[in-house]
């Protein structure tokens, strides 16, 4: 049984490698639309990861440390994108931020900002699906930190922010890193929410997964070359996760 399971996961990857055109792999990746997609993907996924760090850390702290009412509801809300079909997330983002929506309409009329079909929309879509992975990882770590360390630092005269920066953060640093890598990998692989909310404009909103999907018809070897980038990032994420989410 276990052999069958292993084969089930190994076979598609081996088949992908077998179909690759290795001789031109590098040039397939570094020319024209493929390179544009690669650049855009890395930049947007990095931005989504940064946003997850900045906005996800305080939320993880609130969820782990406070007894705020409705905490469970908030946690469910934030984790929902993890199990929601990404296309649904994209439709929801459209409903909230397209020019037809009150908020999107106001942004356009007052500030001349259109989010749809912009790189900002790519970053939003990626953050929407990726941040929950960061929040859940860091929340888990925070709830395992012994509060007495922080209490002691507090009695020694450190303010709450100093306590967080000098005591809590170093203790959860490995989880922050792991959560960030996980969020980056998820953001890089995002397809459904991106194509729905940000569209598919070459060089502007066409990320790696979109390019893989569309080039599969026009240029299969290039699509496979791009797939390898995504596989490599996923493998890197797993390796850097070693000993964090699972023992080795």
């Amino acid at each position: 049984m276990a052999t069958v399971t292993i084969a089930f996961f190994a076979l598609p990857l081996l088949a992908l490698m077998q179909r690759a055109r290795w001789s031109t792999l590098w040039s397939d990746l570094t020319t024209g639309p493929a390179l544009d997609a690669l650049r855009l993907s890395v930049a947007c996924a990095a931005a989504a990861t940064a946003l997850s760090l900045v906005f996800g850390t305080p939320l993880a702290w609130v969820l782990a440390r406070t007894r705020m009412r409705g905490r469970r509801l908030v946690r469910a809300l934030v984790l929902l994108p993890m199990i929601l079909p990404p296309v649904v997330g994209g439709v929801a983002l459209l409903a909230a931020f397209s020019l037809n929506s009150p908020l999107g309409g106001w942004l356009h009329d007052a500030l001349d900002i259109q989010l749809t079909f912009s790189p900002a929309a790519v970053i939003m879509a990626q953050t929407f699906v990726a941040m929950p992975f960061y929040v859940i990882t860091v929340e888990g770590a925070l709830s395992h930190v012994d509060p007495r360390f922080e209490d002691v630092a507090g009695t020694l005269g450190a303010g709450p922010l100093a306590v967080f920066r000098k005591v809590t953060l170093p203790l959860i640093a490995p989880s922050v890193a792991a959560g960030a890598v996980l969020a980056f990998a998820r953001a890089l692989g995002e397809f459904g929410a991106t194509v729905t909310f940000a569209g598919n404009i070459a060089g502007r909103t066409q990320t790696l997964p979109l390019a893989v999907y569309l080039r599969l018809e026009a240029d299969p070897p290039a699509a496979i070359a791009l797939s390898f980038v995504l596989v490599a990032v996923a493998v890197f994420a797993l390796v850097s996760m070693r000993g964090h989410w699972f023992r080795t």
């Binding site: 439709v91 459209l94 397209s98 020019l99 037809n100 999107g104 259109q114 749809t116 079909f117 194509v195 729905t196 909310f197 569209g199 598919n200 404009i201 070459a202 060089g203 502007r204 909103t205 066409q206 999907y213 569309l214």
Partner: peptide, 23 residues
């Protein structure tokens, strides 16, 4: 200009960019 063209995977996706999004 290609920088202002969003490309749909099929004609339905192409239509949806106008009906449900901001194309």
């Amino acid at each position: 200009p290609e920088g202002r063209v969003t490309r749909g995977q099929n004609v339905r996706a192409t239509l949806t960019a106008v009906t449900d999004s901001d194309a």
